[in-house]
């Protein structure tokens, strides 16, 4: 559809996201915003909750019998190696303090070049964090703190959303070991990671859930 979907007002964007009438680009922009805007996320939950009774208008239909085993195969990835299962890190502050602790070491080693960093806090269960860091004038690296389990037919894809931009730009599929950001990603840019079909989003915009999000900022 046309770019007219760009003009959604803040008060109806959440409602239209839940209603399902946004086009792919509008839906992707709303998904990205969900990860970084708690007030927007709360508005989405309001609509999900209030419109929920309408789901009763679709008659229940049992899924194919084989589906449960297919699902269980998809979620069968071993739990993170750390058996002390950390509860979900509900606040970015907690993640930030952990990252700050690791960065303290980094800073001590490289006092001459203050690094930039981003905290990409997990939005999924017992998920590892992603840490982005780089010294001034150096490439910025993005590394997971532990292996991030993804179904075999999926890939994680990295996106950047510069300040003021409304649509994320792809920085490519995120390999298991992390990757270097291309030059020119500025502090203030939001970094987002979405779950996509193998090989990355076919549309050029996130199509799956945004599972990580954070803002690249200067470390002082």
């Amino acid at each position: 559809m046309s770019g007219a979907d760009d003009d959604f007002s803040p008060e109806t964007l959440a409602a239209e996201y839940v209603l399902g009438t946004l086009d792919a680009a509008g839906h992707a922009a709303a998904s990205a915003r969900l990860a970084v805007d708690p007030a927007f996320a709360a508005e989405v939950r309001f609509w999900e909750d209030r419109l929920f009774p309408l789901t009763a208008l679709a008659a229940p239909v049992p899924p194919p019998a084989a589906l449960l085993s297919r699902i269980e195969a998809s979620i069968g990835a071993p739990a993170p190696a750390n058996d002390n299962r950390v509860r979900f890190w509900r606040t970015a502050a907690l993640a930030a303090s952990a990252v700050a602790a690791s960065l303290a070491l980094f800073v001590a080693l490289r006092p001459a070049h203050p690094p930039v960093f981003a905290v990409l806090s997990p939005t999924g269960a017992v998920a590892p964090v992603l840490v982005a860091f780089g010294g001034q004038g150096e490439a910025i690296g993005l590394r997971p703190s532990a292996a991030i389990g993804v179904a075999q037919d999926r890939d994680l894809q990295l996106w950047s959303l510069p300040e003021g931009a409304t649509r994320p730009a792809s920085l490519g599929v995120l390999p298991a070991g992390g990757k270097q950001l291309p030059p020119g990603v500025q502090p203030g840019t939001k970094l987002l990671v979405s779950l996509e079909p193998k090989g990355g989003s076919p549309t050029g915009q996130p199509t799956g859930p945004v599972v990580y999000g954070g803002v690249l900022q200067r470390f002082r």
């Binding site: 399902g20 789901t55 679709a58 008659a59 229940p60 239909v61 049992p62 899924p63 589906l67 449960l68």
Partner: peptide
């Protein structure tokens, strides 16, 4: 699962 699948099938 039947309710989720019913909604998915309808859409």
């Amino acid at each position: 699962s039947a309710r989720l699948h019913g909604v998915a099938l309808r859409i």
